[in-house]
């Protein structure tokens, strides 16, 4: 846990410098590089599912077309807009953190969390509909309206990728909630101390980035 050295005027909050770093700049650089490395592993995690998508789409193009047309495009589009807008507020939170406007940081993260929750609620309705009509992965598929080889694979890929993405939404919400509470309570973000806001926000942008690819792949083509 980073603790801050509170100075008399309370404005120049600086995170504690670990002994093995030459300077605060080097420490921040290490933190940011570590975050990029972590995000690279996340990208490759999702890429595994993209490979499954590509291979099975190649083998079963008709099932893929039928499957994607059975999804609710309106809900998918609304969710895309919600997630892109939540990414904007997360970026603005970093902007305000650099200026030391802690209240705005908190408000921006609160807006992000509201939109994230909205995303999950819409996702829940989509899932509930699929459980109802039976477009489910593998052996659990029981929808009479679409019967063709490979159709169960489409829904396996659909559920695996959207569920993994939803898990990332929940993790991202947790991280942003912690940063939001800190912005409201400790109010110590400022030009020298915004690494937590920045890295949390980067994670949220990754969640957005993944959805930007998942949306056209699953809903449109």
């Amino acid at each position: 846990m980073q603790s801050s050295a509170h100075t008399a005027d309370g404005t120049a909050n600086v995170p504690r410098l670990a002994e093995h770093f030459a300077s605060l700049e080097v420490q921040n650089h290490a933190a940011r590089l570590g975050m990029w490395l972590f995000l690279a592993t996340e990208i490759l995690l999702f890429a595994g599912l993209f490979v499954c998508y590509g291979c099975y789409r190649f083998l079963f193009p008709e099932a893929w077309a039928a499957g994607s047309r059975s999804l609710d495009l309106t809900m998918g589009t609304v969710n895309t807009i919600v997630l892109i807008t939540s990414s904007l507020t997360a970026a603005l939170a970093v902007h305000y953190a650099k200026e030391g406007k802690n209240k705005m940081v908190g408000v921006m993260f609160a807006l992000t969390l509201v939109m994230a929750l909205g995303f999950l609620v819409i996702k829940y309705f989509e899932y509930a509909h699929k459980f109802h009509i039976g477009t489910l992965p593998g052996r659990y598929y029981f929808y009479e309206g679409m019967q063709m080889p490979g159709i169960t694979l489409y829904f396996t890929v659909y559920f695996c990728s959207t569920a993994l993405h939803a898990l990332h939404v929940v993790i991202g919400m947790t991280v942003l909630a912690v940063a939001m509470v800190r912005a409201f309570k400790k109010k110590d973000f400022g030009p020298n101390n915004y690494t937590m806001v920045e890295l949390g926000s980067m994670y949220w942008h990754l969640v957005d980035l993944v959805w930007i690819f998942l949306f056209p792949m699953l809903y449109l083509v």
Binding site: G134, L136, R139, Y140, F142, Y143, E144
Partner: peptide
């Protein structure tokens, strides 16, 4: 030919599994 993938409401390997 595709195998019987058993995806009907009455037919799935687990009878649709959830029903």
């Amino acid at each position: 030919q595709p195998p019987d993938i058993g995806t009907g409401a009455q037919r799935g390997r687990f009878g649709g599994g959830l029903r």
